[in-house]
């Protein structure tokens, strides 16, 4: 049996009178790739924040590899071996690409091994030429790639990505797809995404959120052709 790495039960998040996340039951198996989609305000990002510890859910539980992590701080969750990328780019602008990635590796490895791992992942992401450049001087796509390197360098077994393809060129998106596929060889990956093109190219199973709750969860083709999903989300775009 394949291990369940991430599970939520009855996850509910209320902001005042607004229920942003409504009784979400979610299960993710090891090395699974899952996309979360839904229109604006469907509760994808709230769900994401509850799972990563950026928000503490009003009700319900979050489990990672069977361990309850509800209400944990983000740094505690990350310490389990979970790689997280938030919606807005979160990088250290005044530091070099190498230093950014090294810092992520240093959390789990000693100085020398962290350096080797940083070198290796920078090579794999074809960032070697700009390894000593400050992040603040890089283009958006490059920064996103560096952040993916930060997430991947410590060999996470669970990767949570919030809109990794946002604002990227087609070429960058292709490269991103490749990297994410590589990640799934060792880790389960959850992607919150808007870009339908990107989802079609990458997804196997898709979970659709609508008004805070899970609307349906199925194979990507079936989801895309489902009339209800089209009605709430895809509209004219599909």
């Amino acid at each position: 049996m394949v291990e369940t790495v991430l599970e939520t039960s009855g996850l509910t998040m209320r902001f005042g009178g607004v229920t942003a996340s409504d009784n979400v039951n979610f299960k993710l198996k090891a090395r699974e790739l899952r996309c979360l989609i839904g229109p604006n305000g469907a509760g994808k990002s709230t769900f994401f924040k509850c799972v990563t510890g950026l928000l503490t859910p009003t009700e319900g539980h979050v489990y990672m590899r069977g361990q309850e992590v509800t209400g944990w701080q983000p740094h505690q969750i990350a310490s389990l071996g979970v790689g997280i990328k938030t919606q807005t780019p979160n990088v250290m602008d005044a530091l070099s690409v190498h230093e950014n990635v090294w810092l992520a590796a240093r959390r789990f490895y000693n100085i020398a091994e962290a350096r080797d791992r940083a070198d290796a992942i920078i090579e794999r992401l074809t960032l070697s030429a700009i390894a000593r450049t400050q992040l603040g001087q890089l283009a958006h796509g490059e920064r996103q790639r560096v952040e993916l390197g930060i997430v991947a360098v410590a060999d996470p077994w669970l990767v949570l990505l919030d809109e990794p393809a946002a604002g990227m060129s087609a070429q960058d998106v292709d490269r991103m797809t490749e990297i994410i596929h590589e990640l799934t060889r060792f880790a389960a990956v959850v992607i919150v995404e808007h870009d339908m093109q990107f989802i079609r190219s990458i997804a196997q199973t898709v979970t659709v959120f609508h008004q805070g709750a899970v609307l349906m969860e199925d194979n990507v083709e079936r989801v895309m052709s489902d009339p209800q999903v089209r009605a709430v989300y895809l509209g004219k775009k599909a």
Binding site: H75, Q76, A78, N90, V91, L103, A104, I150
Partner: peptide
Amino acid sequence: GRIAVGIRENEVRMGLMGYDI
């Protein structure tokens, strides 16, 4: 020290890397 500078630059990111800020 290097981690401290990282925290100066971006607390959220360092927290998401697993550091106790």
